[in-house]
């Protein structure tokens, strides 16, 4: 059974913000019959504007599934998700539309499109959203400037280091001005030093834009930098830690 711990005191931005995303009773099962696995077993949570949340737990506890369900990548078998107070989980189209404007992703493996340059990768969410070319250009350059990669704008992902790629992915996640960034092990494929740099960049950028960040991580140091830690065990949220900042 899911537990909902008392919320810790949120940071000023978060206190001021309403819930960007709220989920109740989320359930997700993989497989059928005896081999079926319950990845999420009734998860309730709320993410407020500007909040940095770390989702931690052992491997296979359902962290990535939770992120995918929250981000609309995978549908929940049961439960409800609302974005900015609007229930979206029952309408895939609506979910997709709202997500596109509100929620963005940062993946462990960067998820860059290999045929596109750094700037084109950053531009992609804007292309999908139908933003005019001029505005796309300006926004993507600004996002690349935020992550310090303007001079790399014409390079292909294969010409960049892992850290640079993840910075491009962060710029891509920031460019639509989202309300929430979902990051799945953002430093998982990087060495420690680069991982710290990237994490710094991600958290700083989110805070600067007052954008909520939910990151799945195994790294206690990364978790320590979050406002809140959600601990997941066997598909159940077992504890909401206090604000660690």
């Amino acid at each position: 059974m899911a537990t909902r711990a008392d919320e810790m005191t949120p940071p000023p931005d978060a206190q001021a913000g309403r819930a960007v995303l709220a989920a109740t009773g989320l359930r997700k099962r993989y497989g059928r019959g005896d081999g079926a696995v319950d990845a999420l077993r009734g998860v309730d949570l709320e993410i407020r504007g500007g909040e940095i949340v770390a989702v931690m737990g052992p491997s296979g506890c359902g962290k990535t599934t939770l992120l995918h369900v929250l981000g609309g990548i995978e549908p929940a078998d049961a439960g409800e998700i609302s974005i900015d107070g609007t229930v979206v989980s029952r309408d895939e189209r609506r979910l997709a539309g709202l997500h596109r404007r509100t929620v963005t992703f940062v993946f462990q493996g960067f998820g860059l499109i290999p045929s596109l340059s750094a700037r084109e990768n950053v531009e992609f969410p804007l292309v999908a959203a139908g933003v005019p070319a001029g505005e796309r250009h300006r926004s993507s350059l600004a996002a690349l400037a935020d992550v310090g990669l303007v001079e790399w704008q014409h390079h292909l992902p294969e010409e960049m280091s892992g850290g640079q790629r993840q910075r491009v992915a962060i710029a891509r996640a920031l460019v639509p001005n989202p309300r929430l960034i979902l990051a799945d092990e953002p430093t998982g494929n990087l060495d420690v030093a680069t991982g710290e740099e990237v994490l710094d960049l991600l958290i700083t950028s989110a805070r600067r834009r007052r954008c909520a960040l939910v990151m799945v991580t195994h790294d206690p140091d990364a978790g320590a930098r979050a406002d809140r830690i959600l601990s997941l065990r066997d598909g159940v949220l077992v504890n909401h830690t206090e604000d660690l900042t």
């Binding site: 990548i73 596109r100 963005t104 993946f107 998820g111 290999p114 992609f124 999908a128």
Partner: peptide
């Protein structure tokens, strides 16, 4: 690649 595109808004 297509899944990523979907995830980031396509």
């Amino acid at each position: 690649e297509f899944s990523t595109m979907r995830a980031i808004g396509a």
